[in-house]
Every structure is written in C-alpha cells, then in structure tokens.
Simulated scan of single mutants.
Amino acid sequence: MITVERTFLVELPLGELVTYLEDFAHAEEWDPGTVRCVRIDDGPVRPGARWRNTSRFRGRTTELVYRLESRDAHELVFVGANKTVTSTDVMRFEARSDRATRMSYTASLRFKGLARFAEPFLRSEFETLADKVEQQLPSAAVAR
C-alpha cells in the first residue's frame, strides 16, 4: 500500500472548507490528477453519495467510483475503487481561527492483483502528486 499525507493551512472557516470538500466533484479544481469528476447519484451530499472520477496518471486515464464513507464536522472519508486499485482519502480539519483551518490530507492506495508489484516504483510519483495537491487545494478552496 502507498500512503501519502500532507498538512497545510487553508484560509477558510472550518465549516466552509468541509462543505466545499464534501462534494467530491470539486476534485477537478484541487486535484491535479483529476480530469473529470461527476456525481452519479442524486440527493444531498451525505455518506453513501457517489462520484465517477476520471484521473490521468503516468499518461494513462483511469476511472474510479468514489463513495463518501463518512462525514462529520472534522473529517471526511472517501473510498474509490476499480479493478486495479482501492483509494482511501481521509481529510481531517481543525479550526485555527475564525478564518483559517488546518487540514490533514491522507491518500492511501491499495493495488490489486499484479498491479501491487508496481507499488515500490510508483511511490515517488504519488509523493509528487501529493505535493501538488498541497499547493493547489488551498487556493482552489478560497477561490470557490
């Protein structure tokens, strides 16, 4: 399994940041690997909501269906899967002031079948991708 984690400050109140990120379709704005992300069910965003995420990695396009597994005032958990990988994204939030939130973002990828043998060779690329998320997410959230 590959796990990457970043912690950074976002200049938004905690509630606004959680509301923005709970709609995983916004990954198009803050995740440099996401090409497209669309909701595939209806109703309010709550645990059980699902999105089809199309990502580009190493020149290849792949699709995962993500599900909001849990949501509370201080944490969002999304799980995405396809036949090759299961990705778990955990976002934790801590108010630092009335206008700023400290966010920890952890992405864990568990490859399936033969793909799991590629993990050691992919780790550095996922670290680079996590660096880009850390740079992009705060400004994308504030611009929203």
Rank of each mutant, 00 (worst) to 15 (best):
L17A: 07
G15E: 14
G15D: 12
W30T: 04
M91V: 15
R52A: 07
R46N: 01
L64E: 01
A95T: 05
D42H: 13
S104T: 15
A73I: 02
R99D: 07
E11D: 14
R50K: 10
N82D: 06
A115K: 10
P47R: 09
R96E: 08
E119S: 12
S55R: 13
A115Q: 11
R39H: 00
L68M: 01
T88I: 09
L109N: 09
R71N: 06
R116E: 09
S108G: 14
T86G: 03
S124Q: 15
S87N: 15
P13C: 08
V90D: 00
L17N: 03
R56T: 11
H26V: 10
T62D: 09
P13Q: 11
R71S: 05
A49S: 10
G33S: 15
L129M: 13
A118G: 04
T88N: 01
T86P: 05
R58T: 04
F111W: 08
H74Q: 14
V45G: 03
V90F: 09
E69A: 11
R52M: 00
T61C: 09
E29P: 08
P13K: 10
A100H: 03
A107F: 07
E11H: 12
A81N: 05
G15M: 10
V85R: 10
R99F: 12
D131Q: 14
R99T: 15
T88V: 08
R99Q: 13
F117H: 11
R96Y: 11
T34V: 14
Y105F: 13
L76G: 02
W51G: 01
N82Q: 00
G15A: 13
L114F: 12
V38I: 15
S97G: 00
R56A: 04
L76M: 07
F126P: 04
R46T: 06
F57A: 02
D89T: 15
R96C: 06
K112E: 00
R36A: 08
T86L: 05
E119I: 14
L109A: 05
A49N: 01
P44V: 15
V10H: 06
R60I: 02
E94L: 13
L17K: 03
V45R: 01
R58D: 07
R50N: 05
F57L: 03
T61Q: 10
R116G: 07
G48Q: 07
E69P: 06
G80L: 07
R71C: 00
R71I: 04
E94R: 15
F121E: 07
E127Q: 14
S104P: 07
D131Y: 08
E63Y: 02
S124W: 15
R96W: 05
D42G: 09
G59F: 04
R36L: 08
E28H: 11
